[in-house]
Structure formats: C-alpha cells, structure tokens
C-alpha cells in the first residue's frame, strides 16, 4: 500500500524529477550551465514556447490540435512590426494611418485571435478535423506573412518595443513576466472556471457534454481564439527580442509546442492533462536545447536527441496510465 502511494507520488512528479536530473547532469558536464545569467537566458528563450504551448494545451485538452501556431506567430509579429514602423497607407485615398506601440500590439493580438477564431469556426461549423483545418491555416498564415513582408524582414522597431523581449523588471526578464502571467491566468481558467471544466468535459466525452447542454462549438471556438491570441503574443516577443520580424519566424514551433504538451503529460486524445505539466515540458525542452548547445553538440544531433526524449516521455506516460 505504502509502495503504491510512493509510486503514485513518483508518477505525479516524474517530469519534475526528470528535469532535476537533467539539470544535475548538465551542471556536472558544463560549468557554464548552472549560472544565473544562463538560467535567465533559458527562461527568456522558453517564454515564447510557454505562451504558445499554453494555448496548445487548452486545445489538446478538448481533443484538438493546432498546427498553425508557428505561422500565426510569424504573421502577427510581422503585422505588429509593420504597423509600428510603416503604418498603413492607402495610395488611392491619400490616407495614412499611423500606429502607436499600443495600437500595433493590439492589432497583432487581434489578428492572432481572428485567425484562431477562423480555425475554430471551420472546425465546428464544417466539422473539418482540427488537424486538417489548422494545417490549412499553417499555409494560409505563412502565405499572408510573405505577402505582408514581401519576403523581407521588418527591422528597426524602436527601443520601447524592444523592452518586451529584452527588458528586465524587478530583476526578472520581461518575457518571463508575460509568460508567467499567461500561465497563471490559464491555470485559473482550467481549474476554477466553467470554461475550464467544459474544456475537460468536451475532451473527456464530447457527446455527453453536448447532451448536458454545453455549447460545444462555442467552447471550441473560444479555445482556438485564445490559442491564436497567445501565438500572437509569442510573435510579438520573438520580434521584439530580435528587433526584427522575420518572414520565416516560428517555422516548426508547433512541433516544439506539441512536444511540450505531450512531455507534460497531456493526453492527445483529450480530457486529461494540465497547464503546469506543459510548463514543465517546455522547461525540459528548453533546458535540453540549452544544455546541448553548451556542450557543443551539433544542431543535427540536437534534433535527434529531442526526438527520442519526446518518444520516451510518451512511452513512460502510456505505461503509467495503463497501471492506473
């Protein structure tokens, strides 16, 4: 009995334990790993993935998936950067609209929300499988990014804007504040609100949820919209950190995000998982990336290692749920 309880605790903290062991190993292997500056560096880097993965977790909990987050991130970053730098000009009417920093950021986030809502609409209204609908959006948003940027980076965005990605507040990097706040709100939503409960219920049994009077379509659209908005926040952070909106930013970010969700123990079939699990997953991936760089492992090998880690995480998770 005691052994069982011990086992259950072990399972609950398994990703935490894995993370601890990983950090321990890296600090032995590299003297650069366990330093304050490196720690903040890692946190700053993973902030973007945490933003995206928070939205991804909500979607995966409803048994959906969002492949478009990387492209949406790029488009929204580019829109914010473009509006901030150039505004909008209508040649025909001799009309020019300039954007303040606030206006540009809001426009970026609204764009992300709109694309997310579009995903949700296609999925609920036309019953397009989420995989396909968001795969389409992956291409659409990437194309729109190219159109908007004409394939060139948009740079020179001003010091105030750079504060989002590179600044410090009370000794903590600003992106960490932003992603931390997002995580906090998401934890509250999932654990303490009706929306959160509906998300888990829909993932657990969609048809029973529908019969219980839950407006399944509305919940799904909300979730995809939130994910779109969070991808936009990620886009703004990336753009700000680089002082440049790259047309090919965010490529394959959806994969890192899904990896974080899965490593964090959220079931891809929905209904089971948590935001904090995903945060741990994102940190594990971030630390792993950072450690492999510090150890001078070639980028090619880094990808191979990361792939195996994802596989291992899912295998462990499967064998745990079987023992349940």
């Amino acid at each position: 009995m005691n052994l069982q309880k011990y086992r259950a605790d072990l399972i609950r903290f398994q990703s935490f334990i894995a993370l601890f062991l990983l950090c321990l190993a890296l600090s032995i292997m590299s003297d650069k790993f366990l330093t304050v500056s490196n720690a903040w560096n890692v946190m700053r880097q993973i902030s973007v993935n945490i933003c995206i993965s928070t939205g991804m977790t909500l979607i995966v909990l409803t048994a959906g998936i969002d492949l478009s987050v990387g492209s949406v991130l790029a488009l929204c970053g580019a829109i914010t950067a473009g509006l901030l730098r150039n505004g909008i000009e209508f040649p025909s009417g001799n009309l020019f609209i300039g954007f303040t920093l606030f206006g540009a950021v809001v426009a970026g986030i609204l764009t992300g929300s709109a694309l997310g809502a579009f995903n949700g609409w296609a999925i609920t209204k036309f019953k397009v499988p989420p995989f396909v609908a968001t795969l389409a959006m992956l291409t659409i948003a990437r194309g729109l990014t190219m159109l908007w940027t004409q394939g060139f980076p948009i740079s020179g965005l001003g010091d105030t804007f750079l504060y989002f990605g590179t600044g410090w507040l009370l000794g903590i990097p600003v992106p960490v504040w932003i992603s931390g706040t997002i995580v906090l709100i998401a934890v509250l939503i999932t654990n303490k609100t009706r929306l959160g409960r509906y998300i888990y219920a829909i993932g657990g049994n969609e048809s029973a949820s529908k019969l219980s009077g839950i407006n399944v379509s509305k919940v799904k659209i909300t979730v995809y919209t939130i994910a779109g908005a969070l991808a936009a926040v990620g886009g703004i952070l990336v753009t700000s950190r680089l002082d440049s909106a790259q047309p090919n930013a965010g490529t394959s970010y959806e994969l890192d995000s899904i990896a974080a969700v899965v490593i964090g123990g959220t079931s891809l079939s929905g209904g089971r998982g948590s935001i904090l699990g995903t945060v741990q997953g994102a940190i594990i991936i971030g630390v792993l990336n950072n450690g492999l760089v510090l150890l001078n492992v070639s980028p090619f090998w880094q990808q191979v290692v990361k792939g195996f880690v994802i596989l291992l995480a899912v295998i462990i998770d499967k064998s745990n749920s079987k023992n349940d």
Binding site: T193, Y200, A201, G204, N205, L211
Partner: peptide, 29 residues
C-alpha cells in the same frame, strides 16, 4: 457510457456538469 457520462471524470464533476452556472462564486467555480 457514450452519451451520459464523462467516464474519466469523478462522480462530483459529472453530477455538477449540467448546473455549473449555479455553482459559481464571483466567477469561479
């Protein structure tokens, strides 16, 4: 099993699923 219950959720959550708006307190469950 298919339409009535969310099997992976606990008894409490299943019973409360239809009346969540009444079970809120200042916006939180």
């Amino acid at each position: 099993k298919k339409d009535g219950l969310v099997l992976g959720m606990d008894v409490k959550t299943n019973i409360c699923l239809t009346t969540l708006p009444d079970l809120e307190d200042r916006g939180f469950l």
